[in-house]
Nucleic acid binder design. Structure first.
Length: 407
DNA sequence: GCTATACCTTG
DNA sequence: AAGGTATAG
């Protein structure tokens, strides 16, 4: 039976890419709530579905390692890819040019990949998914220079990078995030793929499924199906949004929003049921190449108030006006990649990553003691005179952490 | 423009 | 109350 790949096995199945951890941290980037499709299947090994294939990724200091699994049913895989691209199967011999234009890959490459070659294609898919052409280290320096608070976070939370996700997967995953938490969302997205997506392969005891097509999501049976899967009121939003896209616009519409201005894409998304300003910004930022989109949720609002003394005229909730103002504030502070910077701070606020802040060794020596002293005061952790820290959590330290975020 | 309320489930 | 949205006042 097929198993999850591990680097230490020494099997010659791994390919590599030069990439430092300051440019990419898999653990932070794949588990901070951008994509809900990756799981840590072995220490430091992340397995998930991307571009219709199952991947395991891991990294060493200067290298990103990847393995792509063979899909279980090649023929089905190829026809499924074509169907997604909007090509009816009996039609495919008619117009070679049109077919190539509509397919993400050309026919020749499609065949090459399925015959277990296509090394360059897969490397390119990874570079595209992680947007490795964007120099994150340089951006961190710019954000840090403009913003002392960012600089303080940045030394620990390096390599938090915006993924370039598939727009359909991104939209329908993010619709599921309202009034929800990451672990439940992960389960819901997994259920969604299992119920409506095609199976790609099985590794150990786990089956992997492609994200459902727009057509599958639009079917009238989907709302009931998702209600049964405990999607709650989001079930209707998913089905109705899919149907509305197909009825009013067509298969290519979402992807075409990549080439229109941010505000226009944002407005277009907001016409969909279940898509408000925050969900639209997430989709813009995480799948439509709008780096300036800053999704403002309750936590980003907390960050703005707590760390940037943002007043907001004492509003009780995030109104449309306040939403725009906070976004503009961060865009003014961080510039055209403000959404990327926001994701770093968002990540640094997640409960599951708080332990990284307890390891002061990555900070500058001088800052280190002072920062540590402040942290210790807050959390009542004892610090020796020589600056050493006892890494024992007190009760009060734990109590200051609620749900996903630190209060 | 701002506030309040319902909407599904889960911890 | 959780990474909100839609609706009415």
């Amino acid at each position: 039976m097929a198993t999850h790949a591990v680097l230490s096995s020494g099997a010659k199945i791994w390919r590599s890419l030069a990439c430092t951890k300051s440019e990419l941290r898999l653990d932070l980037t794949l588990a901070c709530g951008q994509s809900f499709r990756w799981r840590e299947t072995a220490e430091g090994h992340w397995t998930g579905v991307m571009g219709g294939r199952v991947w395991t990724l891991t990294q060493t200091d200067d290298t990103l390692w990847y393995h792509v699994y063979k899909t279980q049913d090649e023929q089905k895989w190829v026809s499924d890819r074509k169907r997604r691209a909007g090509i009816s199967l009996h039609e495919e011999n008619k117009s070679e040019e049109r077919l190539k234009g509509a397919l993400k890959m050309e026919e020749a490459e499609l065949v090459a990949v399925t015959s277990a070659q296509g090394t360059e294609e897969e490397e390119e898919m990874l570079r595209d998914y992680f947007q490795l052409n964007v120099e994150l280290g340089e951006l961190y320096r710019e954000w840090g220079a403009a913003d002392p608070h960012f600089k303080q976070i940045a030394d620990i939370f390096t390599g938090v990078r915006m993924l370039r996700q598939d727009p359909t997967e991104c939209l329908f995953s993010i619709i599921c995030t309202s009034n929800n938490n990451i672990s439940r969302i992960q389960g819901m997205v997994e259920s969604l793929c299992q119920a409506l997506g095609t199976q790609l392969c099985q590794l150990d005891q786990t089956s992997y499924y492609d994200f459902p097509s727009l057509t599958a999501l639009a079917d009238s049976s989907v709302e009931t199906c998702l209600r049964d899967l405990r999607f709650g009121y989001r079930a209707r939003f998913v089905q109705q949004s899919a149907k509305k896209i197909l009825d009013n616009h067509g298969l290519q519409w979402l992807e075409d929003l990549r080439s229109v201005p941010y505000q226009q894409a944002h407005n277009a998304l907001c016409t969909l049921p279940g898509v408000g300003t925050k969900v639209a910004d997430c989709v813009c930022l995480m799948s439509l190449d709008k780096a300036e989109a800053v999704p403002v949720d309750t936590h980003v609002w907390q960050i703005a108030k707590r760390d940037y003394k943002y007043a907001g005229n004492g509003q009780k909730s995030i109104t449309d006006k306040l939403y725009r103002e906070i976004g503009d504030f961060f865009r003014g502070l961080w510039g055209p990649y403000a959404g990327w910077a926001q994701s770093v701070l968002f990540c640094a606020d997640l409960k599951k990553f708080q332990k990284l802040k307890e390891m002061p060794h990555l900070m500058q020596p001088k800052e280190e003691e002072e920062e540590t002293r402040i942290a210790c005061k807050k959390t009542k952790i004892k610090m020796e005179d020589n600056g050493a820290v006892k890494l024992k959590k007190t009760k009060s330290a734990k109590l200051s952490i609620k749900n996903e975020k630190v209060v």
